[in-house]
Design a binder for these strands. Sequence first.
DNA 1: CTTTGCAATGAACGGGTGTTCAGATAATTT
DNA 2: AAATTATCTGAACACCCGTTCATTGCAAAG
Lengths: 195, 195
Amino acid sequence: MARTSGSHAAKTAPRIRAAAIRLFARHGYAAVSMRQIAGEVGVQVGALYNHTADKQSLLLELMEGHLTDLLAACDRADSPDGPVAALEAFVRFHIRYHAERPDEVFIAYMELRNLTPENFARVQTLRRRYEDRLESILRAGIAAGAFRLADARIGTLAIIGMLTGINTWFRAKGRLSLADIEAIYCDMIRQSVGA
Amino acid sequence: MARTSGSHAAKTAPRIRAAAIRLFARHGYAAVSMRQIAGEVGVQVGALYNHTADKQSLLLELMEGHLTDLLAACDRADSPDGPVAALEAFVRFHIRYHAERPDEVFIAYMELRNLTPENFARVQTLRRRYEDRLESILRAGIAAGAFRLADARIGTLAIIGMLTGINTWFRAKGRLSLADIEAIYCDMIRQSVGA
DNA sequence: CTTTGCAATGAACGGGTGTTCAGATAATTT
DNA sequence: AAATTATCTGAACACCCGTTCATTGCAAAG
């Protein structure tokens, strides 16, 4: 090999991903053309195919990248002892992490149906791994008698749904700061599981 | 006028809407072509334009129709006295109504970004009207001292998000029936507002 | 039974789609 | 300095897009 692999790619590939994230989040996967992405990067269409196999792979890379990062960050975040404290830590982590990456989150939740079946399955596996973090906390809380909650799985889906919804309406310039919302959600979610 | 307006339209127009709902929900507005819709109805593309001005209007009609029906049904549903009972009635109504129309719900929540700004504003107004139904209940409960909830608006968005999420994962053949889920959600939501 | 007029056809319009590829470019290793 | 090779260009491919419109068909009104 005569050149370090990706000497240029190291600059262009991330820019393609960044442009795709912005455009997919703004207009939707199906409504964005490869030419639009290329235009945003300042390159011709054909050049994109040096960095991604096709449009579908680009979408998959964005989603898998986002979910992998999410899981890694979730692992890094410390989870305190005790079901109530662990639940609160999860909620705060989720809200903060997702608020910082609205575009990736939007794509990961809205473009699932534009994945091929195999790619959908791969993404769902990652998503399920994240949900399982919360489900474990709920299960432990139920087992310890700390939570009054009939079903850990449904509780997980309900809480994730509640949290995910924030991204659809939260605006930094709104009436309440993110810290305010974090506090309100912590209270509501703690109460929702009967703790 | 030589003929009752819409003697044919009375058959074709609803079929177009039904096909569009199915296809938009399955593949997304941008990914569905007018030719696909026409094919599903068993008609040529041009015929669609006898019943809708353009693709964008078709989307708007579906969304406005869904939200108008939702508001009408919500008004018809009786709301019992007392904040706790009213909240439970709202939750049960929402879950049942939405479970019966998964495709319309999916479109109304996922295709907002494919609306032109004016059309988006119209749909948001209707959606806000529905959210206000819940917000009033929460406000009344807080005022009466029946709920322990810091902010009625955030509580509304949190609960709506929680409820709306059901449609993304509920399957009739799943582990739990809709009635089971209804019961679990009623408990969680009642607890979440501190009642 | 003729008139009326809505609805459906089928072809066309201009333009956009994802993807490929031969050839030019430029940067790194030898 | 020369050779190498990842990257980019620019054009092309075959096909699909939303929308329009002259023409045709047909069901109801008079």
